[in-house]
């Protein structure tokens, strides 16, 4: 089980291979940005994880993100470093939301990896 849900807080910083996405949530408390990050194989490099980090200058309301794949989901709050989510190849569903009314902005950094190598990574904003 640990193999599938292992999370590791890391201090990885932005690098030139990472992908970035920025968004602004509107005022209503029910607002959600719903994203799909697709991790695909690059040749024979099959991704085993997705790296994800969220940042926000806003603390009221407080932004958070959920990353789900299969029957696994984890919650992320801004400015706490990144996580490596070992859920393999495929679609990671990402929701970004907040705990009250008010406009809030955020940026995320994400990329798919096979071992230490980056693999094909695409994002869709639903």
């Amino acid at each position: 089980m640990k193999r599938f849900i292992f999370l590791m807080l890391t201090g990885l910083s932005f690098n030139s291979s990472a992908h970035d996405y920025s968004g602004v949530l509107p005022a209503e408390a029910s607002a959600v940005d719903f994203l799909g990050v697709s991790c695909n194989a690059d040749g024979d490099m099959v991704p085993d994880k997705m790296y994800f980090k969220i940042s926000s200058p806003d603390t009221t309301p407080l932004i958070s993100a959920q990353i789900a794949k299969g029957n696994f989901v984890t919650n992320m709050t801004p400015n706490r470093g990144g996580v490596e989510i070992y859920q393999g190849e495929g679609l990671y569903r990402v929701t970004v939301d907040k705990n009250g009314t008010g406009v809030a902005s955020y940026s995320i950094e994400y990329h798919c990896e096979s071992g230490g190598d980056h693999t094909e990574t695409t994002i869709t904003h639903y």
């Binding site: 408390a29 029910s30 607002a31 959600v32 719903f34 799909g36 929701t95 639903y126």
Partner: peptide, 11 residues
């Protein structure tokens, strides 16, 4: 958060 297909809401 409640999700279905490509739609999600937060509460």
């Amino acid at each position: 958060q409640v999700l279905k297909g490509v739609t999600a809401l937060n509460t």
